[in-house]
Design a protein around this nucleic acid. Structure first.
Lengths: 230, 230
DNA sequence: CGCACCTTTACGCAACCTTTACACTGGCCT
DNA sequence: AGGCCAGTGTAAAGGTTGCGTAAAGGTGCG
């Protein structure tokens, strides 16, 4: 029972796919444009595979893929109307897992999804996440820890998620609202100080292990992790 | 007198095969779907050869093979309806020993099984399975036991499977869901504490035999076997 | 029936997250 | 300049929940 996200602006096609893949035992979610798709793909919800159309209004498939790959390694199967190699190569370079030119038949699609899921089952969840290094810091997704100059610092799940998010977006400001959504999976409410607390705890742990103060506060707008190198 | 396990959802076929191969002097066990097959194949019972159909409900042949290969090197002969190379290559990559496209005639099947058994006779029993060592611990797949600094500790099948899984993935976090799927062959359900219990028992046994506490709990995420050397 | 094993139940603990409370900070207004 | 106050830092208390494990219950097997 795998969860599949379909991102395509062609309503007729998505309905057909929804119907067919549901009948094959997949749990389907549909997004009708790139923005919505990206939001869903990066939300707390889990998808095993994403079917991503290239040609879309607002955000095209490549753009979605590029942004998605900043934070997620969810397998992506690209769909494109044009059969030329250029699209294909670009897609694969950006980290797509497979490629299917339209029109395609349903069984072929089903086979490729299955193949992706099969490959997926080989890799433990924890290894499916991005490893990132910023300055002295490195996240270690396989073991949910952060290392400072090679030394391991233990973090709770939430602290890890918070620091990971900051590192992925290092150099950019993240509002508390965004952080709350990404880390806690819920909108920030009035008088909610949880994020502040987790952040304080992260800073304390980093400090205790000899890291510089890399998490900067931007009063009124949010937080940012600065890369001392850049 | 070799033991053969047939995993195929086609009842008619399995009956025919059972009859035919029994007449050839093999001892036959039949599983009608992938789940049952995997359970049997990884149980305490010994099989010399496994005939594995690719197309099956629940767990397809590739999946069965992949999961089987985590712990066992039992020879596998893949059966598939489609004659295309893709399946064949995938199967062999995953560690199948031979490949037979349907439809096949009985004599051909018999010949291949014989060939596998012949090859088998060359390899000492104990060599046929993967051995893993992590720190003080070593698994002994041939006897389904674990040794701590050479000293043997008896384990039940489930405990062995659990520890083996942790050792194969040492250094990475495994969620309870993954562990349940791999070790018990079923999805984790609400209030299911089986994994906790087996884990507790494994820890107890390791502890009683003087091993360090190598199984780490990551609250909310899962468990990890840490290699003290790394 | 007895045995070995797996699963479920039950309870206590500790880790974790959130809330509360209070001190502090920096910008803005007068 | 000084006062005000929303925004922030963090210690400590409170509440929740996942986890560890003993013990009971269930199941399959010889």
């Amino acid at each position: 029972m795998h969860a599949v996200l379909i991102i395509d602006d062609d309503n007729e096609l998505t309905q057909l796919l929804d119907q067919y893949l549901s009948s094959q035992g997949y749990h389907i979610t549909v997004a009708n444009d790139g923005e919505e798709g990206l939001r869903l793909a990066t939300s707390q919800r889990h998808f095993d595979v994403i079917l991503l159309d290239v040609m879309m209004p607002k955000l095209d498939g490549f753009e979605v893929l590029k942004q998605l790959r900043r934070t997620h390694l969810t397998p992506v199967l690209m769909l494109t109307a044009r059969g030329d190699d250029y699209d294909r190569i670009l897609g694969l370079e950006l980290g797509a897992d497979d490629y299917l030119p339209k029109p395609f038949n349903h069984r072929e699609l089903s086979a490729r999804i299955k193949a992706i899921c099969r490959r997926l089952a080989d890799i433990p969840q924890a290894r499916r996440q991005q490893a990132i290094t910023v300055g002295d810091l490195a996240v270690n997704p396989a073991r949910q820890t952060v290392t400072i100059r090679g030394e391991e610092v233990s973090m709770t799940a939430t602290e890890y998620a918070l620091l990971h998010l900051l590192m992925v977006n290092h150099g950019a400001v993240l509002s508390k609202e965004e952080i709350s959504m990404q880390v806690l999976g819920r909108p920030l409410q009035a008088f909610d100080r949880s994020i502040d607390m987790h952040l304080s705890n992260v800073r304390k742990k980093l400090d205790a292990n000899g890291s510089e103060q890399v998490i900067k506060t931007l009063r009124g707008s949010g937080y940012m992790l600065v890369d001392p190198a850049s």
